[in-house]
Amino acid sequence: MLSLLLLAAALLAWPQLRPLRRLRPKGKREAVVPPHLWVLAAATVTYLVAGVGGLFAGAVLAVTSWRILRRGKRDKATRAATEALSDGIGGVVDELRAGAHPAAAADSAALDTPPPAGDVLRAAAASARSGGDVERTLRELGDPRLKTAVDQLARAWHVSARHGVALADVLDATRRDLDQRAAFARQVHARMAGPRASAAVLAGLPVLGVVLGELSGAGPFHVLTETVAGQVLLVLGAAFLAAGLWWTKRITEVEP
């Protein structure tokens, strides 16, 4: 009872941040907590609740989840950038067939193409305008989201310059190939939604088992947090769970 009263008093005495924010500069009124403080707080709470084993298990699951989310964002950005570059190449082809110079065609298409795809077209336009090696310029671009697509574009430009093939025809073939690759990636991503959902449900079953065990009075949480064998099993279980999640991510994804 005394603990509840102290907690209530602490909540009532909790400082209000709104007056403090008004004293800050206009652009810095939001309180920003450094990310490492959140990590330190989560690690402290995990250690106090589940011990050293729980700390290691939480770290393994947190790192795995972070990498899976980061990889998912990267793949999504790659698909969007590839589709934008494909549309931009289509604009270049239209300009070339209308009689425009390659540099002017790439510049015109880059105006309607979002970055980083627009930056690729602008680099190609600058190199073509100055009479430089467009293939080398494109290959030196370091954006990992468009590495495969830019390599295809560089090869297409090389074929046109070396063998005298019409640039519009080569770029049009490159655009069609990129469109097919993007469509295939979207199709596989959509069809893998079911397996990904099943994997997420299976990943939550161990937690559900612990909760049901606690409700039935078996006390699995005490075993996992208060005994040496439980701590070891907790770490092993987290490692197996992380491996399963990562493997599921790898087999249900496709390179854009």
Rank of each mutant, 00 (worst) to 15 (best):
E30S: 10
L234T: 04
L236P: 05
A62F: 14
A109I: 00
R181P: 03
V159I: 15
V93E: 00
P144M: 05
A197V: 11
T137Q: 15
A193S: 13
R129V: 05
A106Q: 05
P114V: 01
M192Q: 12
L37Q: 12
L121Y: 02
T148P: 05
A173P: 00
A173R: 07
A203Y: 10
A10K: 08
P34K: 08
I251V: 14
E253H: 06
L202G: 08
P115K: 03
R162E: 05
W246P: 01
I251A: 04
G91C: 01
L208R: 11
A8I: 12
L146N: 03
L205T: 11
A104Q: 14
L215M: 14
A124P: 02
Y47P: 09
V170N: 00
G72I: 06
S86R: 05
L224R: 03
D94E: 10
E253P: 03
A106N: 06
L4V: 11
A43Q: 11
W38Y: 10
A80D: 13
V254W: 06
R79A: 08
A106G: 05
W14H: 13
A218S: 15
P19A: 08
R181F: 00
L141D: 02
G91V: 01
H163F: 14
L141I: 09
V150T: 13
G131C: 12
T137Y: 11
G118C: 03
W246S: 05
T64C: 13
E30W: 11
P102V: 05
L141W: 02
A203D: 07
F56W: 15
V93N: 02
Q152E: 15
H189V: 12
A8H: 04
D87W: 02
P256E: 01
L153W: 04
G213R: 02
V232R: 05
P195G: 12
A62D: 11
G88L: 02
A104W: 07
G90H: 00
V232W: 08
V150F: 04
V150S: 00
T46L: 15
P220Y: 08
P115E: 08
D172P: 00
A43T: 14
P195F: 09
